[in-house]
Design a protein around this nucleic acid. Structure first.
Lengths: 142, 142
DNA sequence: AGCTAGTTGCAAATGGTTCTCATGTGCATT
DNA sequence: AATGCACATGAGAACCATTTGCAACTAGCT
């Protein structure tokens, strides 16, 4: 609780330093993102934000998400046939496993894969700037 | 030339066997896909298709692409912030490296990465159904 | 407290893709 | 080769997530 509170104050500082005003609406969205355990999409964030501040509009959710993304505070993911989903960008880099039955998202990280990717890019004469790795899976039944 | 001609006849057979009629428009789109060296999007396919058969509409391009995708004849890719792009599904499985400056797409394949992906999914209690791996790169300057 | 450029809510616009519907046409059957 | 009809097509409207224009606010420097 107090952890995420500190996190929120910290994030607000990042915004202010970036010349982005911390409005009532942005504070609400930021709080929700900081406390979210999942990867909500814009309308889900809107739903949750309205519980804190009923005046938040969906436009503002989108505008805020773009601003936060530009400040490097949140990350946007476009998984297969779905609307964009968001998460705070505080955790170290990771990729995603998506349960194709429930839509649940699990984060994982593989240094070996990361390294192989860079090698492949290099072999083809490129520098790897960023990548996207998503595993679409079904829960194992055994 | 004759290679791709055979390929086209073969693909048309797959469609007929799947209960999909081979119309003038579909033949045109199929020919373009079979001969394409790149990964065109729907409107680019439409542009090219009209050179073979001026009557092809964009709706039909989309409908045909969906039909072909369902028959397993083409594959649809949704790269970052871009319209869907297509390629024939005849080549063995591969992933994509996208030049973020030109939009060019290079295919590659890494058995090691494939294997690691399956291992990761298994460790998390899942069966890997499909995946998406895209490397966004910049040409190396040296 | 006041100023002003950045923000907001609302509604309308966007743009890729899909759908509707009246008309056309592959192709299995004769 | 002619026929019938289920499936296809073209044109444009509909969709829908996301973005934008605009007039009314407001964060936060002074």
């Amino acid at each position: 609780m107090s952890q995420s509170k500190n996190r929120i104050v910290e994030l607000e500082g990042i915004l202010r330093d970036g010349g982005v005003r911390v409005t009532r609406q942005r504070a609400a969205i930021l709080k929700i993102l900081a406390e979210a355990e999942d990867h909500p999409d814009a309308s889900e964030l809107h739903r949750r934000a309205k519980e804190i501040d009923a005046t938040v509009s969906l436009s503002t959710v989108y505008r805020t998400l773009s601003a936060l993304e530009q400040q490097g505070v949140v990350q946007r993911h476009a998984f297969e046939n779905a609307t964009a989903r968001f998460e705070t960008a505080d955790a170290p880099h990771h990729d995603h496993l998506i349960d194709i039955e429930t839509g649940a998202v699990i984060e994982f990280r593989s240094d070996k894969i990361e390294q192989l990717q860079a090698e492949i890019a290099a072999e083809l004469g490129y520098d790897l700037v960023r990548h996207r790795l998503e595993l679409y899976c079904r829960k194992r039944k055994d």
